[in-house]
Design a protein around this nucleic acid. Structure first.
Lengths: 154, 154
DNA sequence: ACCCGATACGTGAATGTTCAACCATCGTAG
DNA sequence: CTACGATGGTTGAACATTCACGTATCGGGT
């Protein structure tokens, strides 16, 4: 931390804009999911992640990696989804420490029902009026930040 | 919602990258603030917001607007900061419904102590290795998204 | 065969956030 | 001046997340 830490005027403006996106965009997306399906942001992406897996099944610890979510949180979250019948647990035959989460029919139907509106909102908030060049630059910037996060071990 | 809602391959990749930034960057910044000062992300920005005001004082409802934070949450949050002696409440002489939050000396000292490391982390995660052009494009994209959020009333 | 650290969860208490009331004050239309 | 809706803020219960710990299993080394 020896070097001058302060941001330039330009960087400050960029950071303020990015910070507002960071705090408000997830809130806006979550609000819609909550209204339409009673799902939180993380809950939606857990269901979506499950639906991408073969057999709509995945080991819980693997799911935690994909979602960058702690095991404990995921365990509570899956318990909630299980109470609502959207997911069920199943012992993993290959490793008896392990538990697999399986998307139920009902969970899949809910996901299919709510996904279009969610994607449409993402399109409206993020991609409408974003040029191909702008999009490519945004993706590169985001990927660079993710790389830094990985390096920092977050 | 009549139009085709799905994202193209490219948009999907961009969204995945942005989503990871959305979920992991605030977590990383908060983790550092928590370690160094026992402060959450929102608590830090509330203290920082206060230190920008003349007299280190601001009406609570005004602070809620700036932080895009609900009054109830802010009220609880300020109560916590008050218990730790970082902030105090003060009746507003101009409007007796209103309460003003004032940054204490101790709160200001904590903020000054923790800010450099926080800013340095922002610099490392976001700005190092981001070209001036890339930064400008990122800022424009972020501002466009904020505009959409405002339009959507979020 | 046995021990020991690592891995994969589950659980309960503590903490933080949201939601739905509530009260006091303000501005204003009648 | 008074009644009434709007504004500013607090509070407590419900819910979600984090933290610390407990349990069971696995994969070696010896």
């Amino acid at each position: 931390m020896a070097e001058d830490p302060w941001l330039t005027e330009d960087e400050m403006a960029t950071w303020r804009a990015l910070d507002r996106v960071l705090t408000r965009l997830p809130r806006a997306l979550e609000a819609q999911l909550e209204r339409d399906a009673g799902l939180g942001y993380m809950e939606y992406y857990v269901l979506a992640g499950l639906s991408d897996q073969p057999g709509h099944t995945i080991r819980i610890s693997r799911l935690a990696e994909l979602a960058h979510c702690e095991l404990s949180r995921l365990s509570h979250l899956i318990s909630r989804l299980e109470r609502r019948g959207l997911v069920r647990r199943e012992p993993d035959p290959d490793d008896r420490r392990s538990t697999r989460a399986v998307l139920t029919e009902e969970g899949y139907r809910l996901l299919v029902a709510v996904a279009p509106a969610h994607v449409a909102l993402v399109r409206r908030l993020v991609f409408d009026d974003l040029s191909p060049t702008g999009q490519r630059t945004l993706r590169e910037a985001a990927n660079r930040i993710v790389t830094r996060l990985d390096e920092a071990g977050a």
